[in-house]
């Protein structure tokens, strides 16, 4: 059996006195597509933000490719990871945000090129070619010299995906990437994610409220409730056949 690329081991997270994650155990395998669903405030965003190193766990371990993300060995003692350690590991991870977070002072081509050039030290010419290819793939080949402010929400989100993809991550995280979009723009973004999910061998973790989409692309669905994984299984097991009343209650909100 293949080894997981990410392991959460009894991960807890508190903000102040409030424990929002109460012991998460989770394996993510290479190329696996995982959808995370659950009520608002259940901790979905927090789970993936800890993997992106945007939030530090209060307790437990996150192992990426065999290496402990938040702890490092210093003279035989495990201490809190420093920036250097985090940077070594998080190069494998990419993330797309709800509110795009494009760099407004750069063209969309520059948005894509900045990190490969400065972080990976790649040649500008190669990066440019790869970025243009990627922007074409998300359907924005004719906009490479535009600024983000000149794009629609759906276009911005597609740029954000291209920007993350040119870094060639092994794991991509998506945090409700369509929920800030006008309804008529959701489709074009889901289409791009579907394309990536079907054709790339990255692992993907998608926090989403799009149940049909989750059914379509996810190998595994996690139902998060009040800081714990309350149910998990294949997409169809969780979304179509779950007998857990909490899951049913949650899903009933999406059926009209």
């Amino acid at each position: 059996m293949t080894k997981p690329i990410v392991e959460y081991k009894d991960v807890h997270k508190s903000f102040g006195d409030v424990e929002v994650l109460k012991g998460i155990d989770l394996d993510i395998f290479p190329a696996e597509k995982i959808a995370v669903i659950g009520p608002s405030g259940s901790g979905k965003t927090t789970i993936i933000r800890m993997l992106m190193t945007l939030e530090e766990p209060t307790d437990g371990d996150i192992i990426v490719d065999g290496k402990n993300l938040w702890k490092m060995d210093k003279h035989g003692k495990m201490v809190e990871a420093d920036e250097k350690h985090l940077r070594e590991i998080r190069g494998d991870i990419g993330m797309v945000f709800q509110h795009f977070n494009l760099f407004p002072h750069m063209t969309i081509l520059e948005n894509c090129m900045t990190a490969p050039i400065h972080v990976k030290g790649e040649k500008k010419k190669e990066v440019k070619k790869r970025s243009i290819d990627m922007l074409e793939r998300v359907g924005l080949g004719d906009k490479i010299n535009n600024y983000p402010s000149q794009l629609s929400g759906g276009q911005k989100q597609r740029v954000a995906m291209a920007r993350a993809l040119v870094m060639r991550p092994k794991i991509m995280l998506f945090d409700e990437v369509t929920s800030a979009l006008d309804p008529e723009l959701v489709g074009e973004v889901l289409e791009v994610i579907r394309d990536i999910a079907k054709n790339d061998d990255m692992a993907m973790v998608l926090v989403t409220h799009e149940m049909d989409f989750a059914l379509d692309v996810a190998d595994k669905v996690l139902f998060l409730d009040d800081g714990v994984i309350a149910e998990q299984g294949s997409a169809s097991d969780v979304i179509e056949h779950s007998e857990n009343p909490r899951v049913q209650e949650f899903l009933s909100r999406f059926r009209s």
């Binding site: 992106m52 190193t53 945007l54 920036e83 940077r87 998080r90 190069g91 991870i93 990419g94 993330m95 945000f97 509110h99 795009f100 977070n101 494009l102 760099f103 407004p104 002072h105 900045t114 990190a115 400065h118 972080v119 920007r163 993350a164 870094m167």
Partner: peptide
């Protein structure tokens, strides 16, 4: 803050984040 988070997600160092993302804005 989203700018800082995007910079971290792209694995920029603190210095690069300041130099290329935060200060220009």
């Amino acid at each position: 803050d989203g700018q800082t988070e995007a910079a971290i997600a792209l694995n920029l160092s603190s210095f690069q984040k300041m130099r290329y993302i935060i200060l220009p804005q």
